[in-house]
């Protein structure tokens, strides 16, 4: 499938915050109450349209347990965008953000766009981290911020697309040398094409190592 740009994303954050569910909701538009936990990395891909340009998002959904960071973080480098996810019902996942952020900044290119996501807004009654706290953390560290629910799909599209929009703006501003693929951006065959009109979003196959 032809695209103008390909952006590589990583999704990071503590285990159990809903990283895989966010990805599944974004690529397949469904929510799975129970699923096998992620070991290593899983992948998803989807086309979005920004400014009439087809942009392919290639998303790396990483395992959240700390020991896995030693094998996944070497792959942060080539990412254009990162979704840093915490669970609004579990305070400790918010407290660990600094460590995730340090890790991401240390192992990625300095122009990586980071979106902070407070997930599970459907569990409002169990909220342990307020919206303001999330917003404040994002402001302090220069991140974009959204609260989402992978279950109800609230803000899930926005989370992925706003990040892409920000990256796209940076390209327009000439922040990146797009011919250098280490920024997590690839220029596709359709880069010069003006593209079609509607926001046509095609869910693509999402790999999973699900069991028999």
């Amino acid at each position: 499938m032809s695209y103008a740009y390909l952006f590589k994303y990583i999704i990071i954050g503590d285990t159990g915050v809903g990283k895989s569910c966010l990805l599944l909701q974004f690529t397949d538009k469904r929510f799975q109450q129970v699923h096998d936990l992620t070991i290593g990395v899983e992948f998803g891909a989807r086309m979005i349209t920004i400014d009439n340009k087809q942009i392919k998002l290639q998303i790396w959904d990483t395992a959240g347990q700390e020991s896995f960071r030693s094998i996944t973080r070497s792959y942060y480098r080539g990412a254009a965008g990162a979704l840093l996810v915490y669970d609004i019902t579990r305070r400790e996942t918010f407290n660990h953000l600094t460590s995730w952020l340090d890790d991401a900044r240390q192992h990625s290119n300095s122009n990586m766009t980071i979106m902070l996501i407070g997930n599970k807004t459907d569990l409002e009654h169990r909220r342990a981290v307020s919206f303001e706290e999330g917003q404040q953390f994002a402001n302090e560290h220069g991140l974009i911020f959204l609260e989402t629910s992978a279950k109800t799909a609230a803000n899930v599209e926005e989370a992925f697309i706003n990040t892409a929009r920000r990256i796209y703006e940076k390209i327009q501003q000439g922040v990146f040398d797009v011919s250098n693929e280490s920024f997590g951006i690839k220029v596709g065959m359709a880069a010069q094409q003006t593209g079609s009109v509607n926001v046509s979003i095609q869910g693509q196959q999402r790999s999973s190592s699900g069991c028999c």
């Binding site: 992948f43 998803g44 891909a45 290639q58 693509q204 196959q205 999402r206 790999s207 190592s209």
Partner: peptide, 8 residues
């Protein structure tokens, strides 16, 4: 054609 394809 891409990683997702390989994984699939």
């Amino acid at each position: 054609e891409d990683i997702a394809g390989v994984y699939a």
